[in-house]
Amino acid sequence: MSTSLPGPWRRLLDEARAYPSPHNSQPIVVRVLDAGRAELLYDLERGLPAENFGIPFGQVCAGVYVESLATVAAGHGWSVAAELRDDGLDFDAAARHQPLGTLELGRAAITPRAEADLAAFRRRRTSRRPYQDLPVDPAVLAEAGALAAAAGHDFGHTAQRGLVDRLVRINQETLFDDLRNDAVHAEILAWIRTSDRSAEATRDGLSARTLLLPGPLLGFAMRHRGMWDLPLAGPLLRRIYLNTMRGVRELGWLTGPFGSPLDHVAAGRLFLRIWLAFTRADVYLHPFGTVITNPRSHAAFTDAAGIVEDGAGGEHLAWMLFRYGHSAEPPRALRRELPEMLLDRDGSTSWDR
């Protein structure tokens, strides 16, 4: 597949592929139709069907991608109008690529805010490093709250030591709980990259380097999940894992409409906007996604934080928990090359050939 795409697509899509995704799975693909229009699709082979919220967070990921592309486009003088479908993903579908909607480009003036957001997007990355014991400027939290409120969501946060420690402990226990689930365990193993060579080969997944864990230890511990419960080895592995959680001083979460596919997409767009607000202030984030997707951990989190969720259909749900703060610059996770994220009109991709 040639990357000589019409209009500004090549430049915009090439930058937008730095968007964050669950397990760094990079499931979003694009079919360019002409200089101003494209189709957005989801690659089911890169989805996370074992997760309790696998489908909703697939659509959250689509929202993160759309907001990423819109951010890149605005910094280059373009707008992105997205018309997305309100039907959910089907992980059992026969077709590998599921349509999410369409994108249309338009000309737009480049504003100082657009330039600042693009600079932040280029710097943005997940930090799993130990955080410094420094408070985050309240003005940053106020901006995050305003962004959430404008989208009909609530931004909650805490620096209360006891609650922070309790939620970090819930996040830690979630990993051990997930490893006991055969389907989730197999899914995690599929995305672990235990060496720089394996990470370079796939340019996706969770690399030992970005997880800040020794590759051989990571691979052995994940393959032999029973070790986490052994009297001697278990506490040692848990201590190594918790070592990256040093310095967590503050945690934030988002609650709001989460009942329909379009709610999920809107949530993803909001999360990227908030992430960029933190990045502009040189504050790093680390989402605790599995706390949300693990039913037991989700209940423990909302109980600890005193969050009231309204409606069985997700009318008001706690859908994101993350730590934030100051840290040393973390390693950047690799991304697949642009041709691997593009589809031809006949549905083929460059890696099919």
Score class of each variant (00 low, 15 high):
residue 300 A to Q: 15
residue 281 A to D: 10
residue 183 A to L: 09
residue 314 G to R: 07
residue 312 A to K: 08
residue 307 I to T: 03
residue 254 L to V: 15
residue 285 L to W: 02
residue 294 N to I: 00
residue 188 I to K: 00
residue 275 W to L: 08
residue 292 I to M: 14
residue 259 G to L: 06
residue 222 M to G: 04
residue 290 T to E: 10
residue 251 L to Q: 00
residue 188 I to V: 15
residue 233 A to I: 15
residue 265 V to I: 15
residue 227 M to C: 10
residue 287 P to W: 00
residue 203 R to S: 12
residue 208 A to H: 14
residue 253 W to C: 08
residue 307 I to Y: 09
residue 259 G to H: 03
residue 234 G to L: 07
residue 268 G to V: 07
residue 242 L to H: 01
residue 207 S to L: 06
residue 310 D to A: 11
residue 262 L to N: 14
residue 282 D to V: 13
residue 264 H to S: 12
residue 188 I to T: 10
residue 313 G to Y: 12
residue 240 I to G: 05
residue 237 L to A: 09
residue 211 L to C: 09
residue 246 R to H: 11
residue 249 R to A: 04
residue 198 S to H: 13
residue 188 I to D: 05
residue 231 P to K: 10
residue 200 E to T: 11
residue 272 L to C: 13
residue 192 I to W: 06
residue 209 R to P: 00
residue 182 D to I: 00
residue 197 R to S: 12
residue 272 L to V: 14
residue 258 F to M: 08
residue 196 D to K: 12
residue 301 F to Y: 13
residue 279 T to H: 03
residue 302 T to S: 08
residue 280 R to Y: 00
residue 217 L to F: 04
residue 306 G to D: 14
residue 283 V to S: 04
residue 282 D to T: 11
residue 294 N to G: 05
residue 264 H to L: 07
residue 223 R to G: 03
residue 289 G to M: 05
residue 292 I to D: 02
residue 208 A to E: 08
residue 299 A to F: 13
residue 237 L to D: 06
residue 204 D to L: 06
residue 261 P to T: 09
residue 189 L to C: 08
residue 270 L to A: 06
residue 292 I to C: 08
residue 181 N to G: 00
residue 303 D to E: 15
residue 227 M to F: 14
residue 257 P to N: 03
residue 256 G to W: 13
residue 308 V to C: 03
residue 279 T to M: 13
residue 197 R to F: 12
residue 259 G to Q: 03
residue 214 P to I: 11
residue 232 L to D: 02
residue 218 L to V: 04
residue 262 L to W: 05
residue 277 A to H: 00
residue 266 A to G: 12
residue 289 G to E: 00
residue 185 H to D: 02
residue 294 N to W: 00
residue 304 A to L: 05
residue 288 F to A: 02
residue 245 M to Q: 15
residue 242 L to Q: 12
residue 238 R to H: 11
residue 247 G to S: 03
residue 195 S to N: 05
residue 220 F to C: 02
residue 275 W to P: 03
residue 212 L to R: 00
residue 276 L to A: 03
residue 270 L to E: 04
residue 189 L to D: 06
residue 221 A to E: 08
residue 310 D to K: 13
residue 254 L to A: 12
residue 315 E to T: 14
residue 268 G to M: 11
residue 246 R to K: 15
residue 290 T to W: 01
residue 270 L to D: 05
residue 187 E to H: 03
residue 230 L to F: 14
residue 311 G to V: 13
residue 248 V to F: 01
